[in-house]
Every structure is written in structure tokens, then in C-alpha cells.
């Protein structure tokens, strides 16, 4: 059985975990190729006007998997912490996808809602595994291995400070994932704050990480911090954030403004409500602290490369010159 996974949204967070799970249960996993202009255009053509950019990209990936797999895996990840929720686009993702892409292969869903307790959580995993086997022990084993694989790769990011593309490259499992070394001499560390599906989708962000690294900057991201560091910094800024992933972003912003970076770039997508609030919180904090520069970059479908390039060059120049003067 072939399971398709769209390379979009939470793929950039949990890709390996699901892949290991399905493969342990004897399925073959097909991941859609990196985003192309055609995929975005096709995804955009399926939605109502006010849908956010990442969702359009996601639908483009689903469309690219039509005819290439038997099932398509779309989790509805409602919450990942006990008292935080996810953006509504994650809650309704399987339903929305089926509504706007009727030709999609049958959707394999799982409802993940940690607020409803552990029992519900395990049951959801069991329900998903049941599509492949009747043996509960096999499902348990597959889910444990999947969790371990996920933990290992989070560790690679947080302990060795590797960006996701570098982790993938080290894993050697995805063809064509080549990371060029940071251009020597490394002159500054720039923190990129934003959702992984914006930071790592090179089409959407116009090769943001590559550009910064080629300009002699080391890039650090929210995943490189531990949960404790993130929570501590987030609590200081906003108390308890309603949205789980946004809390991570605020936490990372708050942390990097004071430790371990020479500049912070907040990356958000146009039309994203949670993003616009979170970036504002970080921007205000940056203005209060006056520690290091902060810049926000808004990505949307029509973002011109020239605008991004000029901003990144100016930001890098500013930071390098500041460091030189000190």
C-alpha cells in the first residue's frame, strides 16, 4: 500500500515520525516533491480568496500526489499541549482537503487532541494503525519507533544546532537535499523565527536560509532551543499563548533577542492571523530591549524576489557593520 504525504505544513515538523510509523507497518511512503510554481498555482485555484498561503501550498501538494498513491495521509492535529490549541486550518485540514479536491485519493486521517487525555491519544494511533494490521503490539511497536525517530531528530536540531535541511542531509534519505556550507568567514548569527513550513519551503521563502548562509551568517531556528528555553521565554512575554506552535515562535523570538543571536528575522505569511499577533509581540519586545535588530519578512504568493534580497542584504550589512564597530 502506498501512502502519500504532502510536503507542506506539518510535514516540516513530523515528517520522519509518520514515515517511520507507516513503514514499520509495511506501507510504502511517497512524499510530494518540493513546491513548484505550478503546485502553488493549482493549489490556489481550489480555495476561497482568504485562505492563507501555506494552505494553498498544501493543497497544491495534495494535487501533485493524485494518482501516485493509494491513500493520502492528512492528520488533524488539534492540540499538542494540554492547554493550547492549533490554528483552525490544522483542525479541519482533512475535511477541507476532501471538500475542495474531490479527486484526491482516499484520505487517511488521525485526530490528535492532547487536551482529551492520553487514552484518547493512544486510541487515535491505534485506529490509524488498524488500517494496516490487526496486531495491536505491532502498532505499539511502530508508534514507539516513530516517536524515537522523531526525538532523535529533534535532538540533532537542538543539541547540534542543525537546521532541518542539514538534518535531512545527514540522514541521507532525501535525494537532492544539498546544503552548501556557510560562506566563510562566519561573521554573525541570525535567528529565523517562524513556522517551519515557511522557514524550510525554499520556493515560498525564496531560499531564505541559503541566502543568509551565503552571506556569511550562521542561521538558528526555534527548533534549536529546548522546550524549557522556549516556554520560559514565551511565558515572560505573553504568559500562556493560546496557540501551541505560536508559543514556540514567541518563545524563540524572546530567547534569541537576548541570547545567542546578532539579529532576529521574523518570517510570516500574509493573511495569517496568529502570525501577525506574534510578530507584533516580538517586535515590541525588540523595541523595548534595544538589544539586537529585528526585521519581519512577510511572504505571499506575489512576493518579488528583489524585495526579499534587498531586505536580507541590508539586514546582513547592518549586523556586520554593527559588529565591526563594537
Amino acid at each position: 500500500m502506498k501512502i502519500g504525504i504532502p510536503r507542506a505544513l506539518l510535514y516540516y515538523r513530523y515528517d520522519l515520525m509518520w514515515q517511520v510509523f507507516f513503514e514499520e507497518l509495511g506501507a510504502e511512503v511517497v512524499i510530494s516533491p518540493p513546491t513548484t510554481p505550478a503546485m502553488l498555482a493549482e493549489g490556489s485555484s481550489r480555495v476561497v480568496a482568504d485562505t492563507c498561503l501555506p494552505t494553498k501550498v498544501f493543497l497544491g501538494h495534495v494535487l501533485s500526489l493524485v494518482g501516485k498513491c493509494d491513500y493520502i495521509f492528512i492528520p488533524a492535529i488539534r492540540s499538542v499541549t494540554k492547554d493550547g490549541y492549533n490554528c483552525s486550518k490544522f483542525l479541519g485540514l482533512p475535511d477541507m482537503t476532501q471538500a475542495v479536491i474531490p479527486e484526491s485519493p482516499p484520505v487517511l486521517e488521525i485526530d490528535i487532541d492532547v487536551t482529551r487525555g492520553q487514552r484518547q491519544f493512544y486510541q487515535a494511533i491505534y485506529q490509524l494503525g488498524k488500517h494496516f494490521t490487526w496486531d495491536p503490539l505491532r502498532i505499539r511497536r511502530a508508534s514507539l519507533l516513530a516517536w524515537q525517530a522523531y526525538q532523535r531528530y529533534r535532538e540533532l536540531m537542538s543539541e547540534q544546532k542543525l537546521t532541518l535541511p542539514r538534518v535531512i542531509q545527514r540522514r541521507g534519505e532525501v535525494e537532492g537535499a544539498v546544503c552548501w556550507p556557510v560562506a566563510a568567514p562566519v561573521r554573525a548569527t541570525i535567528a529565523l523565527i517562524g513556522h517551519p513550513y515557511l522557514l524550510y519551503d525554499e520556493y515560498v521563502n525564496h531560499r531564505l536560509i541559503y541566502r543568509l548562509e551565503q552571506a556569511s551568517n550562521r542561521v538558528v531556528t526555534p527548533e534549536m532551543l529546548t522546550m524549557e528555553e522556549l516556554e520560559l521565554a514565551a511565558t515572560r512575554l505573553v504568559g500562556k499563548a493560546y496557540w501551541a506552535y505560536e508559543e514556540e515562535i514567541v518563545g524563540a523570538g524572546g530567547h534569541y533577542l537576548q541570547n545567542g543571536a546578532d539579529g532576529v528575522i521574523g518570517v510570516m505569511s500574509f493573511g495569517c492571523g496568529p502570525d501577525s499577533l506574534m510578530m507584533d509581540v516580538i517586535q515590541r519586545q525588540a523595541a523595548r530591549l534595544k538589544s539586537i535588530p529585528f526585521m519581519s519578512l512577510t511572504l505571499e504568493e506575489h512576493t518579488a524576489e528583489a524585495g526579499i534580497v534587498t531586505r536580507l542584504e541590508a539586514f546582513t550589512d547592518m549586523i556586520h557593520r554593527r559588529k565591526k564597530e563594537r
Binding site: 535588530p293 529585528f294 526585521m295 512577510t298 505571499e300 506575489h302 512576493t303 518579488a304 524585495g307 534587498t310 531586505r311 541590508a314 539586514f315 550589512d317 547592518m318 557593520r321 554593527r322 564597530e325
Partner: peptide, 11 residues
């Protein structure tokens, strides 16, 4: 004498 912040018009 050092640029500390900047902004540009968007699209």
C-alpha cells in the same frame, strides 16, 4: 553613526 533599524514599503 550605525544603522540600527530600517523599514521598506511592502508589495
Amino acid at each position: 553613526g550605525i544603522v540600527t533599524d530600517f523599514g521598506m514599503n511592502t508589495v
